[in-house]
Amino acid sequence: MTLLLPSSPLNVVDALRGDRTARPLADMTSASGLRAQLEDGIYEIIGKSNPASPLIVRASSLRQPGATTDLSFLAIGRIRGVLINQLLRLHCVGEHVDHAFEEAVDAWRAEAGANELLNRLEQMDDDERARLATDVTAHSVTLLRSLGPLPSRWMPRSTVRATQRLAAGNVVLRDVIDLMMGMNNAHSACVVLLDVTTSPLDEAAERTMRYHALVETLRTSIVPLRTSAFSTATGELWSTGVDHELLTRSYDEVLDVIDQLWKSQ
């Protein structure tokens, strides 16, 4: 039996909004420098050679290679992650969710059509499916209670994709931001990025937060206000303002990944 508190001790939106009067001016100059640094760094790794296929960096590439993992558990974890993401998308447009698991599956079917993970879900026996449904429901309660209603004026967008080609297309940075709020047309920085994970937050979540900020900066040429990660497993929120130091750390991490990918080719 899952016990729930009557209300969440934390409102994620309030934490993301922060003190409106203390927002810095939008930084529109750092992006070009970071891009040039990345191009130089990549050149030092791959030189003039052309990899057979582009080296693709994703947020998942920044996670530490784990120890032995049971593949069946991995698939269930991924399905849970996808379903929670679907619920976030529904919540983002003000859809009231009554039956978290069923509605998330319906939304997923509408979005993806047939795929390997969805087939895996269809093949689950009743017991396995019921376990997953309980799990998803518990995570969704944590998510929806902690998020609270998302203000429409903040222009919440879910599953925002970004692609950045570097080194003449030999390196591609790909990213999907679960939730983005705020718009880039203001003088002050006001775009907030949120990564929602069903795992507890760890060092990898920090790297993912930084990666989101770096790719968003390269994509829009404007440094976002804040990058955050929320765990539906623990209800924890990590949030930090984006500054040059954070972006430089992510730059180092991305170069490390590119180096590993290049060596493994």
Partner: peptide
């Protein structure tokens, strides 16, 4: 169904 409609709204909003 409703969840699929909400997903269409989310994409259109983006």
């Amino acid at each position: 169904n409703h969840p699929a409609l909400a997903l269409v709204s989310a994409e259109a909003m983006n």
